[in-house]
Computed example of a mutant assay.
Amino acid sequence: MRVPDNHKIRVFLADDNLIVREGVRALLATAPDIEVIGVAGSYQELVDGAEKAAPQVLVTDIRMPPSFQREGIEAAKEVRKRHPGTGIVVLSQYDEPDYAIALLSEGAAGYAYLLKDRVAEGDQLFRAIREVTTGGSMLDPRIVEALVRPASQGTDLSPDEEELLQMLAEGRPMKAIAVSRHTTPAAIDDAIEKLFLKLAQAASSGAAGALRRLKLLHQAIVDREEQGESLSRLLPTGIA
């Protein structure tokens, strides 16, 4: 079914590799509700092009000219700062959690992080674009696993606590977590508080894995606050 042009999701695409960029562009052209309105191959082209095109969603690689470091993430944040409602989908060949953390450092709402070698599988990229358009978030399962994978030192989390942490990492709303666990939002509140305290204690003793989880959970709590979930009472002073 043909979607009217004024109802299509306007996407700006950035990747310094011409073959990859055109491949993703061709893939997006198969979605009836998505339209690529501009492309770029560098940080400056991305920022300038997005400013002129005013896309609803930016799909970008991480490393691109001039220094091939984190230009894609930095440009995405610059575009988001100028136009807060813009959805961001990062396509990366790296499943290192540091990149995802850098992307989500200011909140997960409206952000997605996918791996390039999996975007052709099913409709993952299409779903991510539609999700961030409405302020949702989406992480590749391999990234979520890397974010919550127990560190070698361990944090002695129970299976239930690991599951709860993963749900938070995935950006699930409080009510959705409560429904999936067949309990109430108040009970989830209590479980998160206990988990946060457990992670804080482990982090203070120098457990690197627990500290990573602490930062992740802290960000999830901040996101919930932005979404209207009152969890600020869980945030200890001095955590930034």
Rank of each mutant, 00 (worst) to 15 (best):
Q69G: 15
A31M: 02
L13A: 08
L104S: 08
A109K: 01
Y99H: 00
A108H: 07
S92T: 12
A40V: 15
Q69A: 14
D117F: 10
G49F: 06
D61P: 12
G49T: 10
G85I: 08
A109L: 07
P84D: 03
E74Y: 06
Q93R: 06
Y94I: 10
D48L: 01
N6F: 05
I19P: 00
R10I: 11
L114A: 14
G38Q: 15
A120Y: 08
A109G: 06
I62H: 04
E121T: 00
L115M: 12
I19Q: 05
D48A: 03
A26D: 06
A108E: 13
E121F: 05
L27K: 15
R82S: 09
G72P: 11
Y113N: 07
M64G: 04
E51Q: 11
R10E: 06
G122R: 00
V39E: 14
I101A: 10
P65L: 03
A102C: 11
A102D: 15
Q93M: 09
L28I: 02
S42V: 10
A112E: 02
V20P: 04
Y113E: 11
G38S: 07
D16T: 09
Q93I: 13
M64D: 00
D117H: 10
N17P: 03
K52F: 05
S67Y: 03
K116W: 11
H7Q: 15
I34S: 01
L91H: 00
I37R: 15
V59H: 14
I62V: 10
F68H: 07
V39L: 14
I62T: 09
R10V: 07
K77E: 01
K116A: 10
A102Q: 13
D61W: 13
E35A: 13
G38Y: 13
A109S: 09
F12G: 06
L13H: 09
G87C: 05
L115N: 02
A108W: 07
A14Q: 08
E121C: 05
L58C: 09
K77L: 13
P66T: 09
N17V: 15
D61H: 08
E22I: 00
A31C: 07
T86N: 10
